[in-house]
Write a protein that binds this DNA or RNA. Structure first.
Lengths: 159, 159
DNA sequence: TCAGAATCATTAGCTATGAAACGATTCTAC
DNA sequence: GTAGAATCGTTTCATAGCTAATGATTCTGA
């Protein structure tokens, strides 16, 4: 979508201001985001039978060791309900373990297991190779500038 | 995820080359893509009870008037099955209409209806305001440079 | 000519996700 | 001390999307 700016400008410009840069940027960003997810899911995660969100959660646990479920939801950008479902799956695979907070039994901590560490340490290098491949066509300076601009977008929009 | 590069470098750098720029760019791109979808769905499309993909398809039909279902699938980045389901919904709402190709009855064309045009012409300006809001924190030159870099990413990766 | 391959759209079954409801637990104000 | 508000995680229900199977149609090669 959004490939024919001149046409669309004809269609509505009488009533509305059109900013082609906004169209190009927003459309491209969404397309690339989906492309990244699809590519890495198919090329890296699929053969290990682990979903994008599960990988993201296992990664967080690998880095931080122990997290509350609500922190995991925030970090992975999914709802508490999704975390609850994913935790059941990961726990069935013995990749992590839930523990009730003794001080406040409403809270639940999640801990990565040794088996969970094995899996993520096998998986991550391959995932990172995929990340590198995606940006390898850009010069280092362009990568840095892009990172800075994206960071500003995230901050401005609270993404 | 991917917020603690130093930690992760410690964890696997003995075996693997880490490129922080690749991590920052890929992670940010995915996060922004999801953020854009969520924001525009909630702030613009939700009150009109139309999904992101349905909007995208209606937009394409608005621009091109008449398209084959397989073209719609490619343009919207979803499967033919999804198009089939969405077409049923849009047809029930009388926003578009399916027609069998008389030359090859395996093919189906989709045409936007007058009511479909009304809906998209009411909806699009508001959607575009959302697009503008997302990038408004960036200077015009930065927007242009970003668009160019994203375009290269799309081309390199065939996204 | 015509049998099988190819190419469509559609359907069925599945997974992932979110919103809302729910029960358990803790906090707060009096 | 205690009733009500707030905050958890979980469950339930609904929706979006995909893969694989299906049926209809057209093409192809002998």
């Amino acid at each position: 979508m959004h490939t024919e700016e001149s046409t669309i400008i004809q269609k509505i410009s009488k009533k509305t201001t059109i900013e082609p840069n906004a169209i190009a940027v927003v459309t491209s960003l969404y397309r690339i985001g989906q492309g990244i997810k699809n590519k890495l899911e198919q090329e890296v995660l699929a053969k290990h039978k682990i979903s994008w969100t599960s990988f993201s959660i296992l990664y967080d646990l690998w880095i931080y060791g122990k997290m509350e479920t609500k922190e995991l939801a925030l970090s992975a950008g999914v709802s508490k309900a999704t975390i609850s479902n994913i935790m059941r799956t990961l726990e069935n695979k013995s990749l992590c373990r839930r523990e009730t907070d003794p001080r406040d039994r409403r809270n639940t901590f999640v801990v990565i297991t040794p088996k969970g560490k094995e899996v993520i340490e096998e998986l991550y290098p391959e995932f990172h190779e995929g990340e590198i491949a995606i940006v390898k066509g850009l010069k280092t300076d362009d990568q840095k500038q892009l990172a800075a601009t994206l960071y500003k977008l995230i901050k401005d929009n609270k993404f």
